[in-house]
């Protein structure tokens, strides 16, 4: 081959490569975003397959929910209401992915079975990318869920402790917290249902029994009624109290009267009871009445 030809081919070749690389560079942004959207679309498809074989039996094939688990095509999931309820400050994607991966250990209290852990990092069967697949599929209900003209069928709403729900407990069904005004409460206190009170007492949503049962941390609930009577009779500060008043005050104003510490059993420090301070905002009048009724049956 003549030298001139070689030089010509060589130089043309190098310039052609430069042109091609430049052409690739021009298209690179578009190509990368197209890859991303295609990957996410296919991820939704894989998520649909995983959902159908693993999730649909409880959450419904169309995500409408069932007696075993809440609906996922629920508008409240997509309009931010649910995230506010549970106090999630991250993104909706992370919230759903987290619920899928880690499960919801507490949910067994108000559903027949707790949401299992699915992520392999928590002992479940799904890889992180599969958790993302399912999450993308669930989030793909957004358009249908928020379509106000043609709202989706939501068979089963979410349940949350302290918030109106469709489950058995319906804590704070009236929607109005009981507040801290003991006299007003006593004036309006309806008749209580001790059986429901016991359910409230043991339910995880309020968590009473986790401290009080058998006097684990706080005073034992067994003997509440007689203890209250004794205290009213012997403690000057409680003079003129009724048992109802004592019990109501203990729940909505835990610091009003402090049970003395017993040796290493500490019930209060610096005038603050170890009792949770927010029950006045988490239950309504009926819940309180039921709890008081239950406590009075504890002898």
């Amino acid at each position: 081959m003549r030298m001139e030809t070689k030089i010509l081919i060589g130089i043309t070749g190098f310039f052609a490569i430069l042109l091609l690389v430049g052409w690739v560079a021009l298209n690179e942004t578009g190509r990368m975003s197209e890859f991303t959207s295609q990957y996410e679309a296919r991820s939704t498809e894989r998520g649909a397959t995983i959902f159908e074989s693993n999730c649909a039996s409880c959450h419904g094939l169309q995500g409408q929910g069932s007696g075993r688990a809440p609906a996922l095509n629920n508008p409240r999931l997509f309009d931010g209401a649910r995230l506010t309820e549970v106090g999630w400050t991250g993104t909706l994607f992370d919230y759903v992915a987290n619920a899928v991966a880690a499960g919801r250990p507490n949910s067994g209290a108000y559903w027949p079975q707790a949401m299992p852990t699915w992520g392999e990092e928590f002992g479940g069967p799904l890889r992180p990318d599969q958790v993302q697949d399912v999450t993308r599929f669930v989030l793909n209900w957004e358009t249908a869920a928020l379509d106000e003209a043609n709202p989706p069928t939501v068979v089963q709403d979410f349940i949350f402790p302290g918030i109106r729900g469709e489950g058995d407990l319906q804590i704070m069904a009236s929607g109005t917290p009981v507040g801290t005004n003991v006299q007003a409460i006593l004036a309006a206190l309806p008749p209580g249902d001790a059986a429901r009170g016991e359910t409230l007492y043991t339910a995880n949503e309020l968590g009473c029994s986790s401290c009080h049962l058998s006097g684990a941390v706080a005073p034992d609930t067994v003997g509440s009624f007689s203890r209250a009577q004794d205290r009213i009779a012997t403690v000057p500060a409680l003079q003129g109290y009724t048992v109802d008043q004592y019990l109501v005050e203990s729940i909505v104003q835990p610091n009003a009267y402090l049970v003395p510490n017993e040796g290493n059993r500490i019930f209060s420090t610096n005038g603050i009871s170890i009792m949770q301070q927010d029950y006045s905002a988490r239950i309504d009048l009926q819940d309180l009445a039921d709890l008081v009724a239950f406590l009075k049956t504890e002898g």
Partner: peptide, 16 residues
């Protein structure tokens, strides 16, 4: 020069 030519030609084909 042959080798430079070949590098250009093969790289071009590879790129295409």
């Amino acid at each position: 020069t042959n080798e430079i030519l070949w590098i250009a030609a093969v790289s071009f084909i590879l790129t295409v």
